[in-house]
Design a protein around this nucleic acid. Structure first.
Lengths: 201, 201
DNA sequence: GCACTTTGGTAACCGAGGGTCATTAAGCTT
DNA sequence: AAGCTTAATGACCCTCGGTTACCAAAGTGC
């Protein structure tokens, strides 16, 4: 989010608009569901016509990809920050997982995540898949580090373990709905504890 | 799959056709994705017109629900059978989970499962949600049984544990793609072992 | 055997919505 | 001022989910 000062250049203005479109679409896709949101609706909300949107995306699906990309970036950032601490690998793993879940449960991410992610197929934008791989790699790395520093069980298989752990975490994004008594932070703590139970020494 | 002998009655014929439509739709939704399948395509493949389908379903989404229902029934049956053994609860849990994963990875279930499930919202057909609850209950029950018979750790929380375990299992349906070297049975065994690691005594 | 309803299908159509394109208005540049 | 680029518009097309009027064949009562 680079802020502008003075006269924005053409490029800056363009990027600003693009981001505004993506932000608007993210909220609408997230709360109403991809299929129920028309490009007309997005355009109207932004005070332009549908055709104008096509200056910033090549198709509705491409717009969805841009939304997803934004979400993935948030997620990567959150996990990266949480894992940057100086504790044991096990502690960093727990912190990263907790951050992952909490971020995923943000109101504007939640539905986007659970409802939309499945429509991102392997044929899609490379950058999206890159973020996905990056997240996976971050968790595998910290799992490996845990074996090295002795804070996680030595016999675990990082690849399998990351699948199980991320599976459990991603599942939260699917069943969690607001107003269920527990806050995202509480849920994240519970699920993190449960998912890592078999790996802590 | 009740087979017919002799002259089928009107009702039988009708139900036969309905099932054939659902079967066809399941395969197509599963392999091509819900959005990419037109009712025309399904109708053509069955040698009828689009309008004829509306004698057997009330909307495209309703057809999807019927597909999903079929899949859920298969899943419930598979798990029920696998869990019916006489071993310890831990053994039955492992068998059930393995059956769950293997069934989920059947070619005609796979995409339907990962791609389509998210579109089944809480406002949908009761029977679909019932199957979902039923599966969940089956796993929670066997977890409870495991605490009782001592084959699982006493301190586990069945609700949380079933979320984590099913989350890990469902995640497989999302990342698994055919031709990845490992067979569904092998994957099911690996993931089952990994997901239950923290719960076995 | 003949009217008469019921069932299951068809062809034609409708409207919503994604996507396109010629055109125009508003800056830059020289 | 002239010419070029950019961004937006409005009218349009096409696909596809869904509806409706109509028809043919199978069952049913007389």
């Amino acid at each position: 989010m680079t802020e502008l000062t003075g006269f924005p250049t053409r490029k800056q203005l363009r990027d600003l608009k693009r981001r505004e479109i993506v932000r608007c679409a993210t909220v609408k896709f997230g709360t109403e569901g991809y299929e129920n949101v028309t490009l007309e609706a997005i355009a109207t909300e932004l005070g332009v016509t549908k055709a104008a949107l096509y200056n910033y995306c090549s198709s509705k699906n491409d717009l969805l990809m841009q939304c997803y990309e934004l979400g993935m970036d948030l997620l990567v950032d959150a996990v990266e920050t949480a894992m940057a601490g100086t504790g044991s690998a096990a502690e960093r793993l727990a912190a990263g997982l907790k951050a992952y879940i909490v971020t995923m449960l943000r109101p504007d991410m939640q539905y986007l995540w659970s409802y939309t992610r499945p429509m991102v197929t392997s044929g899609d934008k490379r950058s999206v898949l890159d973020s996905r791989d990056k997240l996976d790699a971050m968790f595998r790395n910290v799992l490996n580090a845990g074996i090295s520093d002795g804070s996680l069980r030595a016999e675990l298989d990082p690849k399998l373990a990351s699948l199980v752990i991320l599976g459990a975490a991603n599942w939260v994004g699917i069943w969690y709905r607001e107003g269920g008594g527990q806050s995202p932070v509480e849920i994240a703590a519970d699920v993190t504890g449960e998912a890592l139970r078999g790996y802590l020494v």
